[in-house]
Design a protein around this nucleic acid. Structure first.
Lengths: 342, 342
DNA sequence: CTGAAAGCGCTTACAG
DNA sequence: CTGAAAGCGCTTACAG
C-alpha cells in the first residue's frame, strides 16, 4: 500500500512545471509552451499559466531545459585579457544586450594564447552554447574547425574579414594605422617610429598600415620599429621610449600601438625634460582611461569598443534566431582624436 | 517489427556514458562512478572505463549531470565593476584556481548597485551554483537572506567581518586608511584632506580610519573632505583636486581613496605647476597600473587583489568539499608603498 | 564492489 | 490549438 504512492525521491523543493500546469489546469506541455511564448497556445491558457507561474514563483530549471532541448541559455565570449579595458568595455555591452534576453554570458580568458583559446573552445563546445563571440581571427586551425563543425553561431569582434559564413564586427586596424601615419606626416614628422608590445595580430595590422604609408612616402626606416612580445604596460612603454630615444635621438614621431605604452612614454619624457610634441610627437591607440587627462593630453585613435560589443551581441542574436543579418561584416570605423601630444 | 528497435529520436551525436559503459563492458552506473573517481570501483574497471572514455572522446553532459545530481559545476562571482582592475585582478586568480578544478566561473557585474546585486543573486540561486563569491558586505537584507536560505557556500572578499557562519578574505580597509593618515602626519602634513568618489562601503571605511587618526591628533577638519558618489576616474580626480586647491589652498596633504583619482590630481598639479609633494603631498589607494610610473611616482597602498581571489577560491573549495576551513576570516593585510608623491 | 530501476524537470516529435 | 508518451544523459537510492 505504501508503495502505491509514488514518492518523489529527489525533489529539489523548487516548484516544477508540472505544479504550474496542475495549478493552471492544463498539461505540462501546454504550460511549457505558454511560458516560452509559443504562438500556438490560446490566450486564456497563457494568462492562466503565467499567473500560476507567478503565484508559485516558478523559474524553469536551466539544466532540465538544456538537457531536453539540447541547447543552452549560455553564450560564450572569448577575450584575450580581463585587465585590458579594450575587452572589458566590449564585454560590458555584450552583457547589456544579452542578459535581458535571458542569456548567461560565459567569459573565457585566453590570455592571448592560441592554445588556451583552443582549449576553451573545446570546453565550451562540449555542451554547446547558443552562441559564441570570439576576438579576431588569429586562432589555431583546429579551433576554427571546432567552431565550424559545432554549428554554433559565432561572431568575431575587433577585426574585419570577408569570407562566406563569417560574421564580424570591428574596424580596419590597418586603416587606423594608416591614419596615424598620415597625421604624423601632416604635422611634419619625418622620422616616425612604431613601438609595439604583445604583438597580437591586431597590433601587427596597425603596424602594417602605418608602415605602408611611410613606405609610400619613401620615409620608412625599419630601424625605427621597436617590437616586443612582452605584455603591454605603462612601465614597458617608458622603457621602450627611453631605449628608442637613446638609440635614435633623431626620431620626431612615434606611434605607440596601445595607449598604455604611450602614457608611459609621456611620463618618461616629462621626467627627462623632453618636450612633447615639440621634440617628438606621440600618438597612442585605443583612447584608454587617462589619455584625455595626461600631460600633454594624448593624441590617439578612439576605438568603438562598447559599440562593437553591442553590435556583435545583436548580430549573434539574429543568428541564434536564424534571421540572416543584413550584412555579415559590419565596419564600425575609428576616430583619430587629436589632442596635444601630436 | 520496425517498432521493436527503440530508436533514439533526439540524440545529440556526442558519445554518452552508456556508450562508454558498453565499450568498457560495465554498467553505466559503474562507468559513472569510475569517471567520477568514486573509491568503490575496482581498479581494473576504472582503467577500462577511462580508456573507453578516452577512445570515444567522451565528455560528460553538464546539463544531464546537473539535472540528475541537483548540483552544478558553476561558481558565481559577484563584483561591482568589470573596468576596475581591483576586481578583475581578483577574478583572474579566482579563475586560475577554480577552472582547473572543473568549475565554470559565472561573473555577475553589480555595477555597484545593491538592487542589481539582489537580482543577480536571485538569478544565480534559481539554479544553485556549487558556490558563490561576493564582494564585501554591503547588500540588501533580502540578498543576505537569499544566500543564507539557499545553503550555497559563500565567501566574501575585499572586506573583513567577524560573524558566525561568515567566511571572508580581505584586509582592514579602516586600518589602511589609518596607515595613510599616519604617514602623512609623519611627513609633517597638518591639513590633510580625504577625497573620494563612488562612496561604496569600502571607500567609506578607508575614510573612517583616516579620519579617526586625524581626530585623535586634533587635526581633523571636516571641510577637508571632498566626497562624491560619481564613478571614480582620472578625470574626476583632476577636477576634485582643482576644486579643493581653490577652496582650501592651505591643504598640504591629500588622501585619494583610489589611485585613479590621485593620478588625475597629479596630472592637474603638473599642468598648473604645483609641486608634489613639496606644496601638497598626495597618497592614493590600490597601487593600480601607472602609479609606479607617473610623475611624481605615486605613494599608495598596495592591496592584495590576486591573493584575495586565490584565497577566496581556496576557501570556497573547502566549503564545497564540506571541510571546515581553519579560519573563517583571513586577513591578508596591505602594504603602504612610499614613492615620491608623499 | 557492482547493478537494475527510477527519477531529475524539462521539450521534442507525433497525433488529433 | 492541446496532449500523452517518450526521451534528453546523467546520478541517486536501494539491493545484493
Amino acid at each position: 500500500m505504501t508503495a502505491s504512492t509514488p514518492r518523489k525521491t529527489r525533489a529539489t523543493g523548487r516548484p516544477t512545471l508540472e505544479e504550474v500546469a496542475r495549478r493552471a489546469g492544463v498539461s505540462t506541455i501546454t504550460a511549457s509552451r505558454a511560458l516560452r511564448g509559443l504562438a500556438s497556445v490560446g490566450p486564456e491558457y497563457v494568462a492562466r499559466v503565467q499567473e500560476a507561474a507567478r503565484a508559485l514563483n516558478y523559474v524553469a530549471n536551466p539544466a532540465a531545459r538544456a538537457l531536453a532541448s539540447a541547447r543552452s541559455d549560455a553564450v560564450a565570449v572569448l577575450i584575450p585579457s580581463l585587465t585590458n579595458n579594450v575587452f572589458t568595455d566590449a564585454l560590458e555591452s555584450i552583457h547589456a544586450v544579452l542578459r535581458p534576453r535571458g542569456f548567461e554570458v560565459l567569459i573565457g580568458n585566453t590570455h592571448y594564447s592560441r592554445d588556451a583559446e583552443e582549449d576553451l573552445i573545446r570546453h565550451y563546445l562540449a555542451s554547446p552554447p547558443s552562441g559564441m563571440i570570439v576576438t579576431g581571427f588569429d586562432r589555431t586551425e583546429t579551433a576554427r574547425r571546432l567552431i565550424d563543425a559545432s554549428g554554433v553561431p559565432c561572431v568575431h569582434m575587433m577585426e574585419l574579414a570577408e569570407a562566406a559564413g563569417v560574421y564580424c564586427v570591428g574596424f580596419s586596424q590597418a586603416s587606423a594605422g594608416e591614419a596615424v601615419a598620415e597625421h604624423l606626416l601632416a604635422r611634419g614628422c619625418r622620422r616616425n617610429a612604431f613601438v609595439a608590445a604583445q604583438l597580437d595580430l591586431r597590433m601587427m595590422q596597425r603596424g602594417e598600415g602605418f608602415r605602408r604609408v611611410l613606405q609610400r612616402k619613401g620615409l620608412y626606416d625599419a630601424d625605427l620599429e621597436v617590437l616586443t612580445p612582452a605584455p603591454s604596460s605603462i612601465g614597458l612603454g617608458g622603457q621602450l621610449f627611453l631605449q628608442l630615444m637613446e638609440r635614435r635621438p633623431d626620431v620626431d614621431g612615434i606611434f605607440f600601438g596601445n595607449d598604455d605604452l604611450a602614457q608611459g612614454a609621456l611620463f618618461e619624457a616629462c621626467r627627462r625634460g623632453m618636450r612633447v610634441p615639440e621634440q617628438v610627437a606621440i600618438v597612442g591607440f585605443n583612447d584608454l582611461a587617462g589619455s584625455a587627462d595626461c600631460v600633454p593630453r594624448l593624441t590617439t585613435v578612439r576605438t568603438p569598443r562598447a559599440e562593437m560589443g553591442r553590435t556583435a551581441a545583436g548580430l549573434l542574436l539574429s543568428l541564434i534566431d536564424r534571421e540572416p543579418p543584413s550584412r555579415p561584416a559590419v565596419d564600425l570605423g575609428f576616430e583619430l582624436i587629436v589632442r596635444e601630444s601630436a
